[in-house]
Amino acid sequence: MRHLIRTIAASALFVSSAAFAAPQMTVDLTLSEITEGQYHRPYVAVWVENTQGQPVKTLSLWVWDEGHKWLKDIRRWWRKAGRDDMSFVDGIASATRPAGHYKIDWDLKDELGKALEPARYTVFIEVVREHGGRDLVRQNIDLAAGDFSVQLPATTETGVIDIRLSGMAR
């Protein structure tokens, strides 16, 4: 009997936690393997802007250890979010990544940890390689529209990019 009660309680907890799962956006990003020419790992910035073009949150920033002087090459991100606060940059930057598949999760909160209003935003993915290419990919998202999934076509520097939003109540 006790086992049955524990099983029912655990099941109810699992179902209720799934029903109230926190909203989340996931960006599945693939960095292309480039075999011709001199290859350097790319600098990558993934961030979100509001409809006024103001940065809301930098989700990921991958740079070389000594790469601070090259951050300005991630042009849009640098102008919008990076150049004003180097301590912010130091706090979020991590090492560059080799070609491969990467998952970036976002809890739909801004830089201060405040939940975003259900509105329209734009996700930006900027990939820049020394002696290589530059790609700036953008996708509009509407948090008021509920869950969605979109697949962005491959570019020179990236493979196909999947963006998914889940856990949104309508």
Rank of each mutant, 00 (worst) to 15 (best):
Val56Ile: 15
Asp84Ser: 06
Gly100Asp: 08
Thr26Ile: 12
Glu157Arg: 03
Ile34Asn: 02
Val63Glu: 12
Gly132Ile: 05
Asn50Val: 08
Leu136Asp: 04
Asp142Trp: 14
Gln24Val: 08
Asp162Trp: 13
Gly67Phe: 13
Ile34Trp: 15
Trp77Asn: 04
Gln151His: 04
Ile5Met: 10
Gly113Leu: 03
Asp84His: 14
Val89Thr: 04
Pro153Val: 05
Phe124Ile: 02
Ser94His: 15
Tyr102Gln: 06
Gln151Ile: 12
Asp142Met: 05
Ser16Glu: 07
Leu108Trp: 13
Val48Tyr: 09
Leu31Tyr: 07
Ala21Asn: 01
Leu13Arg: 10
Asp105Ala: 09
Asp147Pro: 01
Tyr102Trp: 07
Trp47Gly: 00
Arg2Val: 13
Gln52Asp: 13
Thr156Pro: 01
Ala45Ser: 08
Trp77Tyr: 12
Pro118Asn: 04
Val150Ile: 13
Ile34Pro: 01
Glu33Val: 04
His40Ile: 05
Tyr121Phe: 15
Thr155Phe: 07
Ala119His: 14
Arg76Asp: 14
Arg97Ile: 11
Tyr102Asp: 00
Ala119Met: 08
Ala81Asn: 06
Asp85Cys: 07
Met86Gln: 14
Thr156Asp: 13
Ser149Arg: 09
Arg2Pro: 01
Gln151Ser: 10
Leu116Met: 09
Trp78Cys: 00
Glu130Val: 14
Ala45Met: 14
Thr155Arg: 07
Ala22Thr: 08
Leu152Pro: 01
His131Phe: 15
Lys69Cys: 01
Gln139Lys: 10
Val123His: 02
Gly167Glu: 01
Tyr102Met: 06
Ile74Gly: 01
Gly167Gln: 03
Glu33Tyr: 08
Trp64Asp: 06
Ser94Gly: 12
